[in-house]
Every structure is written in C-alpha cells, then in structure tokens.
Amino acid sequence: MQFKDYYETLGVEPTAGEAEIKTAYRRLARKYHPDVSKEKGAEERFKAVNEAYEVLRDKDKRAEYDQLRAHGYRPGEEFRPPPGFGGPGFGGGGFRFEQDFGGGGGFSDFFESLFGGGRGPGRAQAPQGDVRATLSVSLEQAHAGGKQRISIDGRTLEVNIPAGIAPGQVIRLAGQGRRGGPRPSDLLLEVEYRPHAQFEVDGRNVLYTLPLAPWQAALGTTVSVPTLGGPVELRVPPDSDTGRKLRLRGRGLPGKPAPGDQIVEIEVRAPKASTDAQKDLYRQMADAFDFDPGRG
C-alpha cells in the first residue's frame, strides 16, 4: 500500500485554509468529473480528488492525517500504519458505510487503513446497546431516494433512503446491529452527504456556480444548467456580473411544506488570449470600454 499526499492531490499547501481547500476541490472535481471530462484517467483522478477532500475538509481527520504526515512519509512510498493509527476511533471513530453499488466511488486501501470503512470492525455502541454508524449518501440519492447496499459482519443489507433525507437524520434497521445476547440490537445509521463535484447544500437549497463567458454575461443568454433532477434551461439576463444569483424554484431537495430551490451564482470567466487575433480583440475592447474593475 502506498502513502498518499492529499495536499499534493488537491494542489494546495499544508497551511491552506478551509476556503482554499474547498476552492481547489471544486475546480479539480469539475475538471475530472467523469460525465464531462475527456482527459485520460479522469475517473481515477476524480476519485483521488474526492478522497483527498474527504480527509482535508474534516478537522479531525485532517489533524490525524497531519500527525501521520509529520512522520516523513512521501507520496508513493510503501506505507504501513504505525502503532496506534487506524482502526476504531481514528479520525472521529465510528462505523462508516459508503455507497456499495459494485464498484466506483469507494475509497482507497490507504484511506481505509487509517479511517476505517464499512468492511471492518469499529462499530460504535449506542446507549441501549444498539450499533450506531455513519451512512454516507450522494446528493442525487438524497434528492430522489432509493436503495443502498451496505455490508456488516459479512452480511449485505439493503437500506431504503427516503427522498429528501437530511444530514443528521437516523435510519433504524431493527435487529441488524450487534448479534448475540437475549435479542439482536438495532443498527442506527446517521446520514451525511458526500461531497459533490458541482453542488453545495444550504438547508433544502442547492447551490451551483455557473461559469459564463464575458459576452454571455453582458448580452444575456440561455444555458442548460444541471440540477439534481436533471438539466433545465435557464435564461441569464443581460448585464449580469459575477456574484449575481438566479433562482430555480423547487429544484432543491424535497421537503415540507415545500421543496428547496437551486441558487445559481454567476461566475464570469475571461478566456485566455492565445493568438495575435485574440489579443487584438482584447485591445479593441480596452479602447472601446472606459472600464476600471476597481471602480466597478
């Protein structure tokens, strides 16, 4: 098993703050998302980026990882967890279940050796002897609901995920916890959302950043925008600028009394001028506009 440098994977320094780490993750996740990327090995890079973010976004996991990294391990070196690392209680502890659909989306052996997973011991006991675990679900699954398979003690269980389930909610599987004793205990699955390459969540609302070319933002356009329920057409008004927010009503997560919305935030991106003709167009724009971005 090889040591992984999660900071190198995200392209950030070990001193990077939460905002920098999140920005780096979103940029790389968009770049390597299997649905849009044409680059060779994009799926594996996408998984590596997700794994790195899973560790560095969590202050407990990051602290434990930094402690390990301080031992001098380098990327690609053969790795064996030192005594006291890995197993129950590491990085916040508990029994963790990831999506199990026959491959794709799982974490590496390196991650599992440190933080555990749905394959081994490390079950946390709830007060009445029940077993408590974390169930990590995708935003798509939280939106639509459905079935998810998990493995525990050599058994495969199918969990029903209700549409609109929120982080922190608990799914109880009666009799599926600790075996033995007068009666089997229950398995309590506390839900968390997995990081998403395109979306963030604010309550029931889903947040999405829409990149636009300067002429699209200035002149207005209609673009196809991804949502958890599938792509929709969005009209962007003329004279839109970075930071402007547009609302797709009812396109957030299901809930009562009403579903959330999708908030689309515009981000204007200037294309790189690679040719003389393109540079000349920028010069013409500079002459045509009396514009100082510092004045707005």
Score class of each variant (00 low, 15 high):
residue 278 Q to K: 13
residue 62 R to Y: 02
residue 5 D to Y: 09
residue 213 A to Q: 12
residue 127 P to M: 02
residue 199 F to W: 01
residue 296 G to L: 10
residue 93 G to Y: 02
residue 60 D to S: 14
residue 15 T to W: 09
residue 179 R to P: 00
residue 196 H to C: 03
residue 48 A to T: 09
residue 109 D to M: 11
residue 151 S to M: 15
residue 71 H to W: 15
residue 180 G to R: 14
residue 224 S to F: 00
residue 122 G to M: 07
residue 13 E to P: 04
residue 111 F to G: 09
residue 104 G to P: 05
residue 102 G to R: 06
residue 61 K to N: 10
residue 117 G to E: 07
residue 137 V to D: 00
residue 271 P to T: 06
residue 139 L to F: 00
residue 19 A to P: 02
residue 38 K to I: 13
residue 61 K to G: 14
residue 198 Q to L: 15
residue 100 D to I: 06
residue 132 R to H: 11
residue 117 G to W: 03
residue 276 D to L: 15
residue 159 V to E: 10
residue 80 R to A: 13
residue 55 V to N: 05
residue 263 I to E: 01
residue 238 P to F: 05
residue 91 G to D: 02
residue 64 E to P: 13
residue 188 L to H: 08
residue 61 K to P: 12
residue 179 R to Q: 08
residue 275 T to A: 02
residue 273 A to I: 01
residue 57 R to T: 07
residue 206 V to H: 03
residue 237 P to G: 04
residue 71 H to L: 15
residue 189 L to G: 00
residue 238 P to E: 08
residue 157 L to C: 02
residue 225 V to M: 04
residue 161 I to G: 01
residue 266 I to M: 09
residue 128 Q to K: 12
residue 274 S to F: 12
residue 294 G to T: 11
residue 135 L to E: 00
residue 217 A to C: 07
residue 173 L to K: 08
residue 134 T to N: 12
residue 230 G to Y: 06
residue 77 E to N: 10
residue 161 I to K: 00
residue 43 E to H: 14
residue 248 L to T: 05
residue 147 K to E: 13
residue 109 D to S: 11
residue 184 P to L: 14
residue 90 F to K: 10
residue 185 S to F: 09
residue 182 P to I: 15
residue 173 L to A: 05
residue 294 G to P: 13
residue 266 I to F: 11
residue 88 P to T: 02
residue 106 G to S: 14
residue 142 A to W: 00
residue 13 E to W: 06
residue 3 F to I: 06
residue 93 G to I: 03
residue 2 Q to Y: 11
residue 200 E to Y: 02
residue 119 R to K: 14
residue 242 T to D: 03
residue 152 I to K: 15
residue 241 D to N: 14
residue 189 L to P: 00
residue 19 A to K: 13
residue 43 E to N: 13
residue 214 P to M: 14
residue 254 P to E: 02
residue 102 G to K: 06
residue 20 E to C: 01
residue 143 H to T: 05
residue 282 Y to H: 13
residue 200 E to G: 05
residue 184 P to K: 09
residue 2 Q to S: 14
residue 152 I to Q: 04
residue 277 A to E: 10
residue 19 A to D: 14
residue 200 E to R: 08
residue 151 S to V: 14
residue 185 S to H: 08
residue 173 L to F: 03
residue 184 P to F: 12
residue 104 G to C: 12
residue 267 E to F: 09
residue 170 V to C: 07
residue 48 A to Q: 10
residue 82 P to R: 12
residue 54 E to F: 09
residue 261 D to Q: 06
residue 134 T to D: 10
residue 97 F to I: 11
residue 77 E to S: 10
residue 201 V to L: 01
residue 272 K to G: 09
residue 268 V to M: 04
residue 48 A to D: 12
residue 98 E to N: 05
residue 202 D to M: 07
residue 264 V to F: 11
residue 296 G to W: 05
residue 271 P to N: 07
residue 26 R to P: 07
residue 195 P to W: 00
residue 153 D to F: 14
residue 74 R to I: 09
residue 230 G to S: 03
residue 236 V to C: 11
residue 163 A to C: 00
residue 140 E to F: 00
residue 202 D to H: 01
residue 129 G to R: 12
residue 62 R to G: 08
residue 70 A to G: 02
residue 173 L to E: 06
residue 30 R to C: 05
residue 23 T to S: 12
residue 118 G to W: 03
